[in-house]
Amino acid sequence: MTAQPTSFALFAYRQEPGCFIHVLLNGLDLHDKGHKVKIVIEGPATTLLPEIETLDAPLPSLFKQATDKGLMDGYCLACATKLGAKDGAKASGLAPLSDMNGHPSMARYVEQGFTVINF
């Protein structure tokens, strides 16, 4: 019996490229298996956005794949601003998310039927 597709919001918090790679790998895997996926870049992970293209493989390629498939929902505007990554985050082409006092609201995803997973 095949499981019904579900929706997942993957929140990436860590500034560690290896951790971010796993967020992207899981997001792509879930998407490829028919699930709805949105990836949100939060906290210290926003500082990776300005340097995404200069990081070691496979991160740039996975980020492009996730972006091309529409999985990247955006980044935390408050965190990117506070951590000095706002311009680089903006240049990434991702949407700034700020619906909860400047931060992305997990409640919004839950209300839309997403299961929230924090990395």
Rank of each mutant, 00 (worst) to 15 (best):
Y13H: 15
Q112T: 07
T47E: 07
L55A: 08
S98N: 12
K86H: 14
G113P: 02
I41A: 03
E111A: 11
M72P: 02
S61L: 06
M100H: 11
L55F: 07
D29V: 13
V116P: 00
P60V: 01
L83F: 11
Q65P: 03
A78R: 02
T115F: 08
A107R: 14
P17R: 03
L83W: 01
Q4V: 08
A9N: 06
A66W: 06
P44M: 15
P60R: 06
H31C: 07
L83M: 12
G113M: 06
K38L: 07
C79E: 04
E53S: 13
A107S: 11
M106R: 10
P50F: 03
L71S: 01
S7E: 06
A89K: 04
H35L: 08
S7V: 06
L83P: 00
C76Q: 01
L59V: 11
R108K: 14
D73A: 15
K82F: 15
M1S: 12
M1P: 05
F63K: 00
G102V: 09
H31Y: 14
Y13K: 13
K90F: 08
K36D: 11
A12K: 01
M100R: 09
N118K: 13
P50Q: 09
T47G: 00
F20I: 05
K69M: 10
S61T: 12
P17Y: 07
L28N: 04
G84C: 10
A80R: 00
P58R: 06
T6G: 06
K33F: 10
M1D: 06
L71P: 00
E53C: 07
R14I: 05
K90C: 07
A89L: 09
Q4M: 10
Q65N: 09
T54F: 01
T47A: 08
I52N: 06
I41S: 03
L25C: 13
L30K: 12
I52V: 11
S105N: 05
G43P: 02
A80L: 06
A89R: 04
K38C: 05
D29G: 14
D56W: 09
G27S: 07
P17S: 08
M100S: 11
T6D: 00
Y109F: 14
Y109G: 04
Q15K: 12
K64G: 00
T67Q: 13
L83K: 04
G84R: 10
I117L: 12
G93E: 07
N101P: 04
S105V: 05
N118E: 10
Q4H: 05
I39Q: 03
G27C: 04
E53A: 14
S105Y: 00
G74T: 01
Q4T: 11
L62T: 03
T47L: 05
F8L: 13
M1C: 09
S61K: 12
E51R: 15
I21F: 03
K33Q: 13
P104Y: 00
D56R: 15
N101F: 10
K36G: 07
K82M: 13
D56E: 15
T46M: 03
S61W: 00
A57S: 15
E111H: 10
